[in-house]
């Protein structure tokens, strides 16, 4: 129903909203979904997703016709495939390095990946430089998203649905089940004969594949790519989106991204000027306050709030139960609340 509604959205909205709110929410959602996949199924909270999607974006942008970069003039689809392949490979490599680490160490290694990628592209002027690559040629079917945002919107929608369905499918495969076992108790899985590090590295590769799709869409969306779009702030934005939506609920990725891009845009219109304290240029403050409120009110994000409200209602309907007081960790499609993984 949601997908059907989103499919009909272009008839409701003007091209700006379609492009700057919905399309942006969809590609940011895919980037956040790659993080939520890793955190909810693999117990890995990665700050490296921005770096990985940047590798896909920069690879693709260098291969096609563009102003800046290598400008090699490849067919956009071939360049897209190459971008995704290089980023996935890069992800597996990073996964191999990070897979033996847990908790804060894993977080730091993945943060380092994003920072290294940022400085690499900012400093290697033959591949980008600080100014980045402009007027990147998208495939003909996408066209110029500023003039006609529809094709890119549908491409992002289809990609989002495929990513969602794909992750759900993967979670039920033996690989996905083993990954969830590793998330819950790596030592026991090791004892059962599973190669825990390999599993985690491969899962990181899958996360990289998903992130790389977001990377490609982001370049088509802005028609350019520059290190300014993959800096530390963006790395944190992706984490904030995932946490606002719900770090352990796949749907949360797109919910968080939709809320983020809506606030990002409209806070500039609605925010009154209060001296130097508050104003349209204080967007980060607003997001920060919302982030704090959500984290305090519901560690499961917005989707977590829905679920706990629903669980309470159900319990109220059933009458008092033994466990009244604390909302139980409800299982939804194999995803469980797993704050211990943090």
């Amino acid at each position: 129903m949601l997908v059907l509604f989103l499919a009909g959205a272009p008839s409701v909205f003007d091209s700006f909203t379609l492009s700057q709110i919905l399309t942006k929410a969809l590609w940011l959602g895919i980037a956040a979904a790659s993080l939520i996949f890793l955190s909810s199924y693999g117990g890995m909270i990665s700050l490296g997703q921005t770096g990985i999607y940047a590798v896909a974006g920069f690879t693709m942008a260098n291969l096609v016709h563009a102003a800046g970069g290598r400008n090699l003039g490849w067919d956009p689809w071939a360049a897209t495939a190459a971008g995704i392949a290089v980023a996935t490979l890069f992800g597996v490599l990073c996964g191999a390095i990070a897979s033996r680490s847990y908790g804060i160490y894993f977080l730091m290694i993945t943060l380092a990946i994003s920072v290294i990628v940022f400085y690499f592209f900012a400093q290697v002027t033959t591949l980008s430089g600080y100014g980045g690559i402009r007027s990147v040629t998208p495939p003909a079917v996408i066209g110029n998203p500023v003039i006609n945002p529809l094709p890119l919107y549908y491409a992002a929608l289809v990609a989002s649905v495929l990513v969602y369905v794909g992750i759900r499918y993967l979670a039920r495969t033996p690989f996905g089940l083993a990954l969830q076992g590793i998330r819950d108790d790596p030592a026991r899985m090791q004892a059962l004969g599973f190669n825990v590090s390999l599993h985690r590295a491969l899962a990181f590769g899958v996360g990289a594949f998903i992130a790389s799709i977001a990377g490609i869409l982001s370049v088509w969306y802005t028609t350019q790519v520059s290190p300014g779009g993959i800096n530390l702030a963006q790395t944190i934005n992706i984490l904030v989106i995932a946490v606002i939506g719900g770090l352990y609920r796949l749907e949360g990725a797109w919910v968080g991204a939709a809320v983020f891009s809506t606030i990002d845009n409209y806070s500039r219109l609605w925010m009154p000027n209060v001296g130097d304290w508050l104003g349209p240029d204080r967007f980060e403050t607003v997001i920060g306050v919302i982030f704090l409120v959500i984290v305090l009110a519901s560690p499961g994000g917005l989707v977590g709030i829905w679920e706990s409200v629903w669980a309470r209602r159900n319990r109220a309907g059933r009458g008092p139960t033994e466990s009244s007081g604390m909302p139980a960790a409800e299982e939804v499609d194999g995803v469980v609340d797993h704050p211990a993984a943090v």
Binding site: L2, F5, A9, F16, I21, V255, Y266, N314
Partner: peptide, 26 residues
């Protein structure tokens, strides 16, 4: 529960879209 959850999500999306539509009209 899953169905209800999806309905909720759809409602949330509808709400969000309505908000952006209103904002857009303004």
């Amino acid at each position: 529960q899953r169905n209800e959850f999806r309905r909720l999500l759809a409602t949330a999306a509808l709400g969000l879209l309505a908000v952006t539509a209103c904002a857009n009209n303004s």
